[in-house]
Amino acid sequence: MPAAHPTPPPPQLPPPNAPAAAIIAPHSETSSLLRKAHSQGWNCITVSLPPHALPLTLAQDPPTIDTAQSLTHKSMRRTAKALRAHGIRAVIPGSPLSIALALSDQLAQELHLPGNDPETSQLRCDRGAQAAALTQAGVVAPRSLRTTNLSDALRWAHLCRLPAYVIAPASTAASGLARTARTDEEISRAWRQLRRTAHHRTGGRNLVIQEALPGPQYILHSITSPDEDRPRHTITEIWSSQTRTIPLGRPVAQGELIARTLSRYARQVLDVLEVEAGALRSRIVCAPGQGPTLLSARVHPAHSLRHTTAPPADAARCSFRTRTQRHTCRTDRPPLELFAGGLR
Protein backbone atom coordinates (compact mmCIF):
# COMPACT_ATOMS: atom_id res chain seq x y z
CA MET A 1 0.00 0.00 0.00
CA PRO A 2 1.61 3.31 -1.01
CA ALA A 3 2.50 5.72 1.73
CA ALA A 4 0.11 8.61 2.20
CA HIS A 5 1.41 12.02 1.29
CA PRO A 6 1.75 14.28 4.33
CA THR A 7 -0.56 17.27 4.45
CA PRO A 8 1.45 20.44 3.79
CA PRO A 9 1.60 22.81 6.75
CA PRO A 10 -0.50 25.97 6.52
CA PRO A 11 1.42 29.02 5.30
CA GLN A 12 3.02 31.14 7.97
CA LEU A 13 1.52 34.56 8.44
CA PRO A 14 3.90 37.51 8.26
CA PRO A 15 4.77 39.36 11.45
CA PRO A 16 2.28 41.97 12.70
CA ASN A 17 4.56 44.84 11.64
CA ALA A 18 4.75 43.65 8.00
CA PRO A 19 3.34 45.95 5.28
CA ALA A 20 -0.43 45.61 5.01
CA ALA A 21 -2.76 45.65 2.01
CA ALA A 22 -6.56 45.73 2.01
CA ILE A 23 -8.29 43.41 -0.49
CA ILE A 24 -11.74 44.84 -1.22
CA ALA A 25 -14.77 42.63 -2.04
CA PRO A 26 -12.59 39.55 -2.62
CA HIS A 27 -13.52 36.76 -4.98
CA SER A 28 -13.10 33.11 -3.97
CA GLU A 29 -10.13 32.86 -6.39
CA THR A 30 -8.34 35.47 -4.26
CA SER A 31 -7.44 32.87 -1.60
CA SER A 32 -4.44 31.43 -3.46
CA LEU A 33 -3.08 34.94 -4.05
CA LEU A 34 -3.47 35.81 -0.38
CA ARG A 35 -1.56 32.70 0.71
CA LYS A 36 1.31 33.55 -1.62
CA ALA A 37 1.30 37.19 -0.53
CA HIS A 38 1.48 36.09 3.11
CA SER A 39 4.46 33.88 2.32
CA GLN A 40 6.20 36.91 0.77
CA GLY A 41 5.78 38.97 3.92
CA TRP A 42 2.52 40.83 3.37
CA ASN A 43 -0.28 41.23 5.86
CA CYS A 44 -3.49 41.03 3.83
CA ILE A 45 -6.80 42.18 5.28
CA THR A 46 -9.98 41.40 3.36
CA VAL A 47 -12.95 43.76 3.35
CA SER A 48 -16.11 41.82 2.53
CA LEU A 49 -19.50 43.23 1.66
CA PRO A 50 -22.52 42.45 3.86
CA PRO A 51 -24.98 39.94 2.32
CA HIS A 52 -27.60 42.62 1.59
CA ALA A 53 -25.08 44.52 -0.59
CA LEU A 54 -24.16 41.46 -2.68
CA PRO A 55 -25.82 40.33 -5.92
CA LEU A 56 -28.15 37.39 -5.32
CA THR A 57 -25.75 34.76 -6.66
CA LEU A 58 -22.96 35.84 -4.29
CA ALA A 59 -25.32 36.40 -1.36
CA GLN A 60 -26.51 32.78 -1.63
CA ASP A 61 -22.98 31.41 -2.02
CA PRO A 62 -20.49 33.93 -0.59
CA PRO A 63 -16.81 33.34 -1.36
CA THR A 64 -14.74 31.60 1.30
CA ILE A 65 -11.48 33.47 1.78
CA ASP A 66 -8.59 31.91 3.68
CA THR A 67 -7.21 34.82 5.69
CA ALA A 68 -6.69 35.44 9.37
CA GLN A 69 -7.71 39.10 9.19
CA SER A 70 -11.00 40.26 7.72
CA LEU A 71 -13.75 42.76 8.32
CA THR A 72 -17.19 43.46 6.90
CA HIS A 73 -17.87 46.82 5.31
CA LYS A 74 -20.66 48.69 7.11
CA SER A 75 -19.88 52.33 6.42
CA MET A 76 -17.09 54.25 4.75
CA ARG A 77 -16.12 55.99 7.98
CA ARG A 78 -15.93 52.78 10.03
CA THR A 79 -14.12 50.76 7.38
CA ALA A 80 -11.57 53.50 6.72
CA LYS A 81 -10.98 53.89 10.46
CA ALA A 82 -10.40 50.13 10.86
CA LEU A 83 -8.01 49.98 7.90
CA ARG A 84 -6.16 53.05 9.12
CA ALA A 85 -5.60 51.30 12.45
CA HIS A 86 -4.00 48.39 10.56
CA GLY A 87 -1.57 50.76 8.80
CA ILE A 88 -2.80 49.88 5.32
CA ARG A 89 -0.31 50.80 2.58
CA ALA A 90 -2.32 49.66 -0.47
CA VAL A 91 -5.97 49.21 -1.43
CA ILE A 92 -6.51 46.41 -3.95
CA PRO A 93 -9.78 45.58 -5.77
CA GLY A 94 -10.48 41.92 -5.03
CA SER A 95 -13.11 41.66 -7.76
CA PRO A 96 -14.82 43.77 -10.43
CA LEU A 97 -17.68 44.21 -7.96
CA SER A 98 -15.51 46.45 -5.78
CA ILE A 99 -15.11 48.80 -8.75
CA ALA A 100 -18.80 48.66 -9.70
CA LEU A 101 -19.63 49.90 -6.20
CA ALA A 102 -16.71 52.39 -6.27
CA LEU A 103 -15.69 50.96 -2.90
CA SER A 104 -12.00 50.43 -3.67
CA ASP A 105 -11.66 53.91 -5.14
CA GLN A 106 -13.48 55.55 -2.22
CA LEU A 107 -11.39 53.74 0.39
CA ALA A 108 -8.13 54.62 -1.38
CA GLN A 109 -9.24 58.24 -1.38
CA GLU A 110 -10.20 58.14 2.31
CA LEU A 111 -6.83 56.61 3.21
CA HIS A 112 -4.84 58.99 0.92
CA LEU A 113 -3.41 56.05 -1.02
CA PRO A 114 -2.93 55.68 -4.79
CA GLY A 115 -6.18 54.93 -6.56
CA ASN A 116 -8.68 56.14 -9.11
CA ASP A 117 -11.32 58.84 -8.90
CA PRO A 118 -14.52 57.38 -7.35
CA GLU A 119 -16.57 59.75 -9.52
CA THR A 120 -15.42 57.89 -12.64
CA SER A 121 -15.59 54.30 -11.36
CA GLN A 122 -18.34 53.40 -13.83
CA LEU A 123 -15.92 53.95 -16.70
CA ARG A 124 -13.87 51.00 -15.46
CA CYS A 125 -16.70 48.51 -14.93
CA ASP A 126 -19.48 49.20 -17.45
CA ARG A 127 -19.42 48.25 -21.13
CA GLY A 128 -21.94 50.88 -22.13
CA ALA A 129 -20.17 53.68 -20.27
CA GLN A 130 -16.85 52.62 -21.79
CA ALA A 131 -18.16 52.65 -25.38
CA ALA A 132 -19.87 56.02 -24.85
CA ALA A 133 -16.75 57.62 -23.32
CA LEU A 134 -14.51 56.35 -26.11
CA THR A 135 -16.91 57.58 -28.79
CA GLN A 136 -17.13 61.00 -27.17
CA ALA A 137 -13.33 61.20 -27.02
CA GLY A 138 -12.97 60.28 -30.70
CA VAL A 139 -11.42 56.86 -29.95
CA VAL A 140 -12.65 53.84 -31.90
CA ALA A 141 -15.45 51.99 -30.07
CA PRO A 142 -18.30 49.66 -31.02
CA ARG A 143 -21.70 51.19 -31.71
CA SER A 144 -23.81 50.30 -28.69
CA LEU A 145 -26.79 51.13 -26.52
CA ARG A 146 -27.06 50.67 -22.75
CA THR A 147 -30.62 50.22 -21.52
CA THR A 148 -32.98 48.14 -19.38
CA ASN A 149 -35.73 48.25 -22.00
CA LEU A 150 -36.07 45.63 -24.74
CA SER A 151 -38.20 47.97 -26.88
CA ASP A 152 -35.39 50.54 -26.87
CA ALA A 153 -32.91 47.85 -27.90
CA LEU A 154 -35.10 46.69 -30.80
CA ARG A 155 -35.70 50.27 -31.93
CA TRP A 156 -31.94 50.94 -31.89
CA ALA A 157 -31.26 47.74 -33.88
CA HIS A 158 -33.81 48.84 -36.52
CA LEU A 159 -32.06 52.19 -36.85
CA CYS A 160 -28.57 50.66 -37.15
CA ARG A 161 -29.48 47.76 -39.48
CA LEU A 162 -26.31 45.83 -38.67
CA PRO A 163 -25.63 42.21 -39.73
CA ALA A 164 -25.37 41.00 -36.12
CA TYR A 165 -25.48 42.24 -32.55
CA VAL A 166 -24.02 41.22 -29.21
CA ILE A 167 -26.19 41.30 -26.09
CA ALA A 168 -24.36 41.35 -22.74
CA PRO A 169 -24.74 42.64 -19.18
CA ALA A 170 -23.60 46.24 -18.90
CA SER A 171 -21.50 45.41 -15.85
CA THR A 172 -18.14 43.84 -16.64
CA ALA A 173 -18.36 42.01 -13.29
CA ALA A 174 -20.25 39.34 -15.27
CA SER A 175 -18.19 37.60 -17.93
CA GLY A 176 -18.95 34.81 -20.37
CA LEU A 177 -22.63 35.76 -20.75
CA ALA A 178 -22.61 37.55 -24.12
CA ARG A 179 -25.03 36.34 -26.79
CA THR A 180 -24.94 37.00 -30.55
CA ALA A 181 -28.25 37.80 -32.26
CA ARG A 182 -29.25 38.68 -35.82
CA THR A 183 -33.04 38.99 -35.82
CA ASP A 184 -35.64 40.65 -33.59
CA GLU A 185 -36.62 37.22 -32.31
CA GLU A 186 -33.03 36.34 -31.38
CA ILE A 187 -32.47 39.73 -29.74
CA SER A 188 -35.65 39.33 -27.69
CA ARG A 189 -34.76 35.79 -26.62
CA ALA A 190 -31.22 36.76 -25.60
CA TRP A 191 -32.52 39.85 -23.79
CA ARG A 192 -35.01 37.88 -21.67
CA GLN A 193 -32.39 35.24 -20.84
CA LEU A 194 -29.78 37.75 -19.78
CA ARG A 195 -31.94 40.27 -17.92
CA ARG A 196 -32.53 38.04 -14.89
CA THR A 197 -29.07 36.48 -15.02
CA ALA A 198 -27.38 39.89 -15.10
CA HIS A 199 -29.36 41.07 -12.10
CA HIS A 200 -28.53 37.94 -10.11
CA ARG A 201 -24.83 38.04 -11.04
CA THR A 202 -24.15 41.79 -10.83
CA GLY A 203 -27.05 43.41 -8.99
CA GLY A 204 -27.73 45.64 -12.02
CA ARG A 205 -30.49 45.43 -14.62
CA ASN A 206 -28.83 47.28 -17.50
CA LEU A 207 -27.87 45.35 -20.62
CA VAL A 208 -25.86 46.47 -23.63
CA ILE A 209 -26.65 45.78 -27.25
CA GLN A 210 -23.71 46.50 -29.54
CA GLU A 211 -22.53 45.74 -33.03
CA ALA A 212 -20.92 42.32 -33.42
CA LEU A 213 -17.44 42.94 -34.77
CA PRO A 214 -15.61 40.16 -36.64
CA GLY A 215 -11.89 39.62 -36.28
CA PRO A 216 -9.34 38.13 -33.90
CA GLN A 217 -9.67 39.08 -30.25
CA TYR A 218 -6.89 39.82 -27.78
CA ILE A 219 -6.61 40.06 -24.01
CA LEU A 220 -4.34 42.84 -22.74
CA HIS A 221 -3.15 43.16 -19.16
CA SER A 222 -1.99 46.59 -18.10
CA ILE A 223 -0.51 48.25 -15.04
CA THR A 224 -0.92 51.96 -14.43
CA SER A 225 1.39 53.77 -12.06
CA PRO A 226 0.92 57.33 -10.79
CA ASP A 227 3.41 59.96 -11.86
CA GLU A 228 3.95 63.67 -11.32
CA ASP A 229 2.45 64.80 -14.65
CA ARG A 230 0.31 61.92 -15.91
CA PRO A 231 -0.15 58.22 -15.19
CA ARG A 232 2.22 55.70 -16.79
CA HIS A 233 0.42 52.85 -18.59
CA THR A 234 2.45 49.67 -19.10
CA ILE A 235 1.09 46.79 -21.18
CA THR A 236 2.47 43.74 -19.41
CA GLU A 237 0.90 40.87 -21.37
CA ILE A 238 -0.98 40.31 -24.62
CA TRP A 239 -2.75 37.06 -25.41
CA SER A 240 -4.56 36.08 -28.58
CA SER A 241 -8.08 34.74 -28.23
CA GLN A 242 -10.12 33.92 -31.32
CA THR A 243 -13.49 33.82 -29.52
CA ARG A 244 -15.02 35.03 -26.27
CA THR A 245 -15.50 31.49 -24.92
CA ILE A 246 -12.24 29.59 -25.42
CA PRO A 247 -9.27 29.83 -23.03
CA LEU A 248 -6.48 32.25 -23.78
CA GLY A 249 -4.47 31.37 -26.85
CA ARG A 250 -0.84 32.11 -27.57
CA PRO A 251 1.06 34.98 -25.96
CA VAL A 252 1.87 37.82 -28.33
CA ALA A 253 5.45 39.08 -28.20
CA GLN A 254 5.78 42.78 -27.42
CA GLY A 255 7.97 43.28 -30.52
CA GLU A 256 5.30 42.09 -32.98
CA LEU A 257 3.60 44.73 -35.09
CA ILE A 258 0.15 43.75 -33.79
CA ALA A 259 1.41 44.12 -30.21
CA ARG A 260 2.61 47.66 -30.88
CA THR A 261 -0.70 48.55 -32.54
CA LEU A 262 -2.75 47.08 -29.69
CA SER A 263 -0.58 48.73 -27.02
CA ARG A 264 -0.88 52.15 -28.64
CA TYR A 265 -4.67 51.84 -28.78
CA ALA A 266 -4.89 50.42 -25.24
CA ARG A 267 -3.03 53.41 -23.80
CA GLN A 268 -5.58 55.71 -25.43
CA VAL A 269 -8.35 53.62 -23.86
CA LEU A 270 -6.77 53.76 -20.41
CA ASP A 271 -6.54 57.55 -20.65
CA VAL A 272 -10.20 57.86 -21.66
CA LEU A 273 -11.31 55.51 -18.86
CA GLU A 274 -9.33 57.73 -16.48
CA VAL A 275 -7.22 54.91 -15.10
CA GLU A 276 -4.76 56.54 -12.71
CA ALA A 277 -3.46 53.48 -10.85
CA GLY A 278 -3.83 49.71 -10.75
CA ALA A 279 -4.38 46.74 -13.06
CA LEU A 280 -6.89 46.33 -15.86
CA ARG A 281 -7.79 43.48 -18.19
CA SER A 282 -9.00 44.64 -21.61
CA ARG A 283 -10.60 42.59 -24.39
CA ILE A 284 -9.94 44.12 -27.81
CA VAL A 285 -11.01 42.97 -31.25
CA CYS A 286 -9.11 43.85 -34.42
CA ALA A 287 -11.99 44.42 -36.81
CA PRO A 288 -11.23 44.52 -40.56
CA GLY A 289 -11.22 48.08 -41.84
CA GLN A 290 -11.61 49.48 -38.30
CA GLY A 291 -8.58 48.36 -36.33
CA PRO A 292 -8.38 47.73 -32.57
CA THR A 293 -11.71 48.23 -30.80
CA LEU A 294 -12.39 47.79 -27.10
CA LEU A 295 -15.10 45.27 -26.21
CA SER A 296 -14.73 45.51 -22.42
CA ALA A 297 -12.26 46.39 -19.69
CA ARG A 298 -12.35 45.26 -16.06
CA VAL A 299 -10.36 44.39 -12.99
CA HIS A 300 -9.34 40.74 -13.02
CA PRO A 301 -8.98 39.05 -9.60
CA ALA A 302 -5.99 36.99 -10.76
CA HIS A 303 -4.14 40.20 -11.62
CA SER A 304 -5.33 42.54 -8.87
CA LEU A 305 -2.04 42.35 -7.01
CA ARG A 306 0.24 42.72 -10.02
CA HIS A 307 3.16 44.99 -9.18
CA THR A 308 1.33 46.28 -6.11
CA THR A 309 3.86 47.46 -3.58
CA ALA A 310 3.87 47.88 0.15
CA PRO A 311 6.06 50.82 1.14
CA PRO A 312 7.84 50.85 4.46
CA ALA A 313 6.11 53.01 7.06
CA ASP A 314 9.02 55.45 7.28
CA ALA A 315 9.53 55.81 3.51
CA ALA A 316 9.71 59.29 2.05
CA ARG A 317 6.45 60.75 0.79
CA CYS A 318 5.88 62.01 -2.70
CA SER A 319 2.75 63.48 -4.19
CA PHE A 320 1.08 63.25 -7.57
CA ARG A 321 -2.05 64.80 -8.97
CA THR A 322 -4.95 62.90 -10.51
CA ARG A 323 -7.50 64.56 -12.75
CA THR A 324 -9.63 65.62 -9.80
CA GLN A 325 -7.63 65.35 -6.61
CA ARG A 326 -4.22 64.99 -5.01
CA HIS A 327 -3.20 61.64 -3.57
CA THR A 328 -0.17 60.67 -1.53
CA CYS A 329 2.21 57.87 -2.42
CA ARG A 330 5.53 56.61 -1.09
CA THR A 331 8.84 55.85 -2.68
CA ASP A 332 11.29 52.95 -2.29
CA ARG A 333 8.66 50.27 -2.91
CA PRO A 334 9.61 46.60 -3.26
CA PRO A 335 7.53 45.17 -6.15
CA LEU A 336 5.12 42.30 -5.71
CA GLU A 337 5.26 40.37 -8.99
CA LEU A 338 2.43 38.32 -10.42
CA PHE A 339 2.07 36.31 -13.59
CA ALA A 340 -0.97 34.90 -15.34
CA GLY A 341 -1.37 31.99 -12.92
CA GLY A 342 -0.77 33.81 -9.64
CA LEU A 343 1.84 35.49 -7.53
CA ARG A 344 5.49 34.62 -7.83
Rank of each mutant, 00 (worst) to 15 (best):
K36C: 14
I258W: 12
A4L: 15
L280E: 04
R260V: 08
T120I: 11
A4S: 14
P169M: 11
T293C: 11
P231K: 05
E119W: 09
A137G: 10
S75M: 15
S225A: 02
L177S: 02
A25R: 03
H221P: 03
W191I: 04
R192N: 01
A190C: 12
E228S: 15
T57A: 10
P10V: 03
S95R: 03
P312F: 14
G203Y: 00
S175A: 01
T202S: 00
H27Y: 13
A259P: 02
P163V: 13
L194D: 00
L280C: 04
R189G: 05
R230V: 00
E274L: 06
H5S: 14
V166L: 10
Y265E: 07
T72G: 05
N43W: 14
E119V: 11
P216C: 08
A313D: 13
L294R: 06
E276S: 09
T57C: 05
L101A: 07
S188F: 12
C286Q: 13
E256K: 06
H158Q: 05
D229G: 13
V275M: 04
T57G: 11
T135F: 08
P169Y: 04
L159N: 11
Y165P: 07
T328L: 00
G176Y: 11
P96V: 13
T243V: 08
A3T: 14
P251L: 01
I23S: 10
L83P: 01
L113F: 02
T245E: 03
G249W: 08
S222N: 00
R146K: 15
A277V: 07
I219Y: 09
P311A: 12
H158T: 05
I235L: 03
A108I: 00
R260T: 10
L270Y: 00
R124M: 01
P6I: 07
E256F: 10
T197A: 10
A253H: 10
Q290I: 01
G138T: 05
I223V: 01
P62I: 05
L56Q: 01
K36R: 15
I45R: 09
P55W: 07
R201A: 15
T46S: 12
T7N: 04
L220W: 07
L159R: 13
Q254M: 02
R182Q: 09
A190V: 09
L213G: 00
T202C: 13
H112V: 01
S32Y: 10
S95D: 02
L294K: 11
A59L: 09
Q60K: 15
R192L: 07
P163S: 15
R146G: 08
E29V: 10
C286F: 12
R78M: 13
W156N: 11
T67W: 06
T72K: 06
A137W: 12
A21Y: 14
T79M: 04
I99L: 11
P247L: 04
G215F: 02
G203W: 02
I246T: 03
L83W: 05
P9F: 06
I284A: 00
P334W: 06
K74G: 15
